[in-house]
């Protein structure tokens, strides 16, 4: 279980509060206006930003002082998820062994992960030779190999077109199913939140609100969410569109 225990994050004048928990395997979209602190929340859980108060706990263990690489997390950034000077296979290998001393068993696991994500045979390529969608798939393949219990995605598919995005979201769900990971995905798009399935944690006025069922949230949005969605009334039309 991920527990944000009276967590307070500060960056300059900016303050963000969170006090809730989510069970293993949950799917949570993180939504909110630009600058609300969506990425800040993920950065704190990933270990790039120390809380100024409160705790982040995983299964009861306080993550304070745990280095990012040793946390139970995998994070996909908006871009730069692959090292351009390493091959795709090496980039995946880093998920298994950071020193890249790979065994034959490791290599066949990498091949299987490539296959699983539709990248068969692309292992020897450099990231520059991949399309945007393929690069996202490679990053997800590495998440599959790392199999950490928390998978965080910071708008990783923002640069992809709608069809590709839908494909990627399906893949995220498959990866999460396979690894049993709790998913935290930052997105701007309510359609993405719906497609992820599960809950949505909305951020407004310096607070990350506890996750609530996405369908219900969009059907009957509180004022702040409605303002964000640009909708005062008639949520039904949106849902039709979103489905």
């Amino acid at each position: 279980m991920l527990h944000l225990d009276r967590l307070i994050l500060t960056q300059g004048d900016f303050r963000l509060l969170a006090d809730w928990s989510a069970p293993a395997g949950a799917r949570i979209a993180v939504m909110g206006p630009s600058g609300a602190g969506k990425s800040t929340l993920l950065a704190a859980i990933a270990g790039f930003l120390a809380p100024s108060a409160g705790r982040i706990l995983w299964n009861g263990q306080d993550l304070a002082g745990v280095a990012p690489g040793d946390r139970p997390t995998t994070i996909l950034f908006q871009d730069q998820n692959l090292f351009p000077h390493l091959t795709v296979a090496q980039n995946l290998g880093l998920g298994l062994r950071p020193d890249l001393r790979l065994t034959d068993a490791d290599r066949s696991r990498i091949d299987r992960a490539l296959e699983r994500t539709g990248l068969s045979g692309l292992g020897p390529r450099r990231p520059a030779q991949l399309s945007g969608g393929q690069a996202s798939r490679a990053a997800l393949a590495r998440a599959l190999l790392r199999a950490r219990p928390i998978l965080m995605l910071d708008e990783p598919f923002a640069a992809l077109g709608p069809a590709l995005r839908a494909e990627m979201l399906a893949l995220v769900r498959e990866v999460a199913d396979e690894t049993g990971a709790l998913v935290l995905m930052v997105t701007h798009d309510p359609a993405d939140a719906l497609a992820l399935g599960g809950k949505t944690a909305f951020i407004a006025d310096g607070t990350v609100h506890p996750p609530v069922d996405t369908g219900r949230l969009l059907a009957d949005p509180p004022a702040a969410v409605a303002a964000y969605l640009g909708r005062r009334q008639d949520p039904g039309t949106f849902l039709l569109h979103g489905e």
């Binding site: 270990g47 280095a67 990012p68 995998t74 950034f77 730069q80 390493l86």
Partner: peptide, 25 residues
């Protein structure tokens, strides 16, 4: 700025970080 967080999140430290990230880049 470009790869620090990615390398940290993958636990790339010490000699492997030098060998696979810093020296090539």
């Amino acid at each position: 700025a470009d790869y620090g967080r990615l390398a940290d999140s993958l636990g790339l430290h010490g000699w492997p970080r030098l060998r696979w990230l810093i020296l090539p880049r």
